[in-house]
Every structure is written in C-alpha cells, then in structure tokens.
Design a protein around this nucleic acid. Structure first.
Length: 276
DNA sequence: CTACACTCCTAGATTACATCA
DNA sequence: ACTGATGTAATCTAGGAGTGT
C-alpha cells in the first residue's frame, strides 16, 4: 500500500496515480493525496485472483483512491475572512455532476464533497439529505443571496420563537422525528431547529448558573455577617471574663437557635432548663 | 472478546450578524 | 450617520455513545 501526499501544482505526484487529472489553474492552491497499492502488491493480488478463477463481481483490479482538492473557495476575502465555509466548492460540485458512475473520478469527487461536508459546515450532509428527503429547495432560497454568500443571519419570527419555546418547555431535547416535525411546522431547516435547541439549552444553563451564583453570593454574605456577629460576641464574652473573674462560676452558656427568626442566641444552662 | 473506524449527537466556546440606544 | 453594547443564530471543536467489521 502506498500513501502519497503533495501540496502544490504537481499534476502527477505519484507513480501509482497515473490517472491524475491536470490542475489547470495556477491561481489555486492544489492538494493531492493518493492511497493505493504498489505495483508489486497489485501484481501479486492480480495473480492471486487469477489463481482463484477470478471474481466477476470485482469491479477494478486497482482500487486506488485519490483525493484532489483545488481550493479557490478557501480564499474568498469578500467578507473579510479567509475561508467562507458556507460556500459549496463549485469544483467539487462540477466534478460530481460530470463524473460517470463507472469512472474513478466519481470516487475523487465524492471525496471532495465529503471533505467539504465534514469541515463542519452547518448545512452538512445530514441536513442536505433531510432536505432531499423532503424535496425542499427552500434552504438555498433562504440563506444564499445572489452572490452565493451565506451565513446571513435570519431572525426567527415571534411566532416561531414562541412555538420553539413551548416545545422547549415540553422537552429540552429533541429526537430526530420531533426535530423534523418542528422544522416542517415552522418552515425551518432541521438544522436550524437543532441549533435553536442547542443555544436554548446553553442559555438555560447560563441563566441557572447566574441564579446559582446569586444564591451562593447571598449565602456568602449571610455567613460573613454571621461570622462577624459571632466574632463580636466572642470578644464581648472575653471582655466580660476579664472584668468578672467569677464569671466562670456561673452556669455554662449555650448557643441556641431561635426557631422563629433562626438567629443564634446565647442562653445559660439554667435558662434552658426552665424553658426560657 | 477486543480493537478500531465510523457516524451521530451534544456541550461549550466562539464568531458573526442584526438590532437598538 | 456613526458607534458600542447586546442578543442570538451559526460555526467550530472535542468527546462520548452506539454500531459494524
């Protein structure tokens, strides 16, 4: 097995990639990766297959895989960023459209597409698939302007938000079925519903964290105040002790909690005994 | 049974855009 | 008209769970 990798304009980087299409433009960064068997290995496999009488179901004797990427779309600076991930690379689409089913190019263009989908594009394969299932072309209508640039942030309508909120109250996690149903109902893409729920959960958690923080802050303040009060009390008791050495002969003082105001008070043992 | 690859999903962090004061 | 703050949709990344080989 051979693994080859080249960056740059070489049109035929590896010996085992003899069908490498020429990269025509010099403007584009080229990336070519190939995975295939060495000639020896291929020969031995071929001999082995012939020895077994051959298998008519096997399509190719040379199942090499190669990946070609030309990345002009990575350098779209119209929007101030080097990489516009929302744009489907036309080179990949063109490859997919023109490649015949029996051609090795098909595998190449599939790789290109897959690479693009796997780059975390929000309109990933899953959603594209879902849309295909629903026979909808709305996505392309909604978030791509005439320049093809997307990530145009849409604002959900009040009705949509309210509906999503209601759904969130019922269940803050969606199963795929619910997601699809909601998307259909609200005329949104499933991905948008998914993202809304993700963000909603994040907001809920953030809010809860803020509330917890506030609560802990109040607790801290209360305890600080209580601590200060107790310190003061200790000081008073010490002062009392130095002024009245016979103080210790008095019954022991205990701390009790007042049930009504939940404040700690000092009571002597005798007071406690008689129930004061 | 185990290891590995792959897919799917999620949380968390971040970015980018729309809106408002 | 411009600007900074804010809310939020969208994106990126890492990690876990499930599944097939």
């Amino acid at each position: 097995m051979e693994l080859g990798l080249s960056l740059g304009g070489s049109s035929k980087p590896f010996s085992f990639l003899e069908k490498t299409p020429k990269l025509s433009s010099n403007d584009h960064l080229g990336f070519c990766m190939g995975l295939g068997r060495s000639q020896e290995k291929r020969d031995s496999l071929e001999a082995e297959r012939r020895g077994n009488g051959g298998d008519s179901k096997r399509v190719s004797s040379d199942p090499h895989l190669q990946l070609h990427l030309r990345l002009p779309w990575l350098f779209d600076n119209r929007r101030g960023r080097g990489l516009d991930v929302n744009r489907l690379p036309m080179v990949a689409l063109a490859g997919e459209a023109t490649a015949g089913h029996s051609s090795p190019d098909r595998a190449v263009s599939s790789c290109q597409l897959d690479f693009w989908f796997r780059k975390g594009n929000s309109r990933g394969k899953r959603d594209m698939d879902a849309e295909t299932e629903r026979g909808s072309s709305r996505a392309s209508d909604d978030d791509e302007d005439e320049n093809g640039s997307s990530r145009k942030k849409l604002r959900l309508s009040k009705e949509q938000s309210a509906f999503l909120e209601e759904s969130f109250k019922e269940h803050n996690n969606l199963n795929p079925k619910q997601k699809l149903a909601l998307a259909k109902q609200l005329n949104l893409r499933p991905r948008q519903v998914e993202v809304w729920f993700q963000n909603r959960r994040a907001r809920t958690k953030l809010k809860q964290t803020e509330l917890d923080c506030e609560y802990l802050k109040r607790c801290c303040e209360t305890l600080t105040e209580e601590n200060r009060r107790l310190h003061k009390e200790v000081q008073e008791l010490r002062a009392l002790k130095t002024c009245q050495p016979f103080y210790m002969q008095l019954p022991a003082t205990t701390l009790t909690m007042c049930p009504s105001c939940e404040r700690v008070t000092t009571t002597s043992a005798t007071d406690a005994k008689i129930g004061i």
